[in-house]
Structures are given as structure tokens and as C-alpha cells.
Amino acid sequence: MNVFSIVWKNFKQWLSVDKPPQSNAAPPRSLYLRHLDCGSCNGCELELNALSNPLYDSVQYGIQFESSPRHADALVMTGPYTRNLDEAARLTLAAMPAPIIITIGDCARDGHIFQDTYAIMERPSEIQSAIQQHIPGCPPTPGQILAALQKFKTE
């Protein structure tokens, strides 16, 4: 058996492995995220950062943070949506390949404790309509965020 045939045999094996498993298990997918701060208190950021420590290690599930919205499958949005960040938030969304937003923390649901101030605004419709998932909590724990993201990834 020459070298070529060994490689070929392995390659065939590799091809067969790549077939999606015929079971109920979710297909292995990844979820690349871009973080968008819309005026948080930075508590939610602490917990998002904790996702990358070895105890949660979100990367092993294919969940990781990207440095450009161009590379991201979804925006992870925190904070109650301040007026001063409105423009930047809309530009970030516009830079996405597909508009998908996951909101993190009670602030990002309805403003939470920061409701009804002159500096917080209602989210424009393009942002509002892109929101597909909300993760509640003040802040949600890394475990809760990770579970919700994994679920989101497989849906």
C-alpha cells in the first residue's frame, strides 16, 4: 500500500465522519457574536466576559465573540438604549450580514431601573424587529447566558 492510498483511505473515512449523525442530537453549529453596549451598568459585561473563562469556556460550544459585526451571526445587546448610542447602535446593526439581536439583562428588555428618563429612548423599529431572544436577569449569570445561547444556536 503506498502513501497515496493511506491518505485516500483516511480521506474517505473523514468524509464519512462529516455526515450529520442520524440522531436527535443537535447538529454541531457555531454562533459568532458581537457585543453591543447600549448603556449598561457594566454588570452584564462582567458576566459576558466570564463566559470565556475555562469554567464556562463558551468556545468549546462554538460560541465566541468577534471583533467586527461583519463576522457575527448575532449581536448581543446590553443596556437600556441611551440616546447618545442610538446612531452607533443602528450603524452596528447595519454592518451585520443578517440582522439578529439577542438582548441580555433586564435593562435591555424594558430599561429596568433606568426606565422613564430623558436620556433613554425607545428602540427604533429596525432594532426592535431584529430582537430574537431575550436573556433575563440583572445580570443573568454566565450559566444562564450560556444555556440560553446554546439553545438559541440549535434552534
Binding site: 431601573i113 433606568f114 428618563t117
Partner: peptide, 9 residues
């Protein structure tokens, strides 16, 4: 950018 009007609140 993150001004939320906390003192008014």
C-alpha cells in the same frame, strides 16, 4: 455615550 440621566432619576 452611556449617559442614562441617573442623577435626575
Amino acid at each position: 455615550y452611556k449617559h442614562k440621566g441617573i442623577e435626575k432619576l
